[in-house]
Amino acid sequence: MKPKNKRLSLIVATMTALAASVALILVAFEDNVVFFYSPSDLLKKRPGPTQKLRIGGLVKKDSIKREPGVTEVSFEVTDLNNSVPVVFNGILPDLFREEQGVVAEGRYREQLFYATQILAKHDEQYMPPEVAESLKKSGKWKGPVELEK
């Protein structure tokens, strides 16, 4: 090959590699972006049963239920206007408590949110930004200090 052709083929090869990487990234993006809903959004927009999504709010008071003999736990996530029942199979994060902020990832089917993951917090003071957003939207935001109680 002449040097000129060689350079051309090198450029073509690099461009192809770059295009392939971009295509790879875009395809992966398309499938894996997870939208966030507040409980009120969820009831209004009703996403399909196969769509993966995140919901966030506070764990409703006195809503955590465990049946004897099963490992499944159910609770309600609320933005203090609406709430969504959630079921989750597994060990909850250590800082999971009633009236504390929570973010759950999973799918919404037949009025029930099947969580596959409950996001943990490492810090008691921490409020996930989405949860704060949910509460602001429902007009129940009182600032982080009061919510800690």
């Binding site: 992966a28 894996n32 972006v33 939208f35 989405e130």
Partner: peptide
């Protein structure tokens, strides 16, 4: 809107 990009995206890109 609020979105998150989860582990499946990163695995789908990083591994190949």
């Amino acid at each position: 809107g609020k979105i998150s990009v989860g582990a499946p995206y990163f695995n789908a890109v990083f591994v190949p």
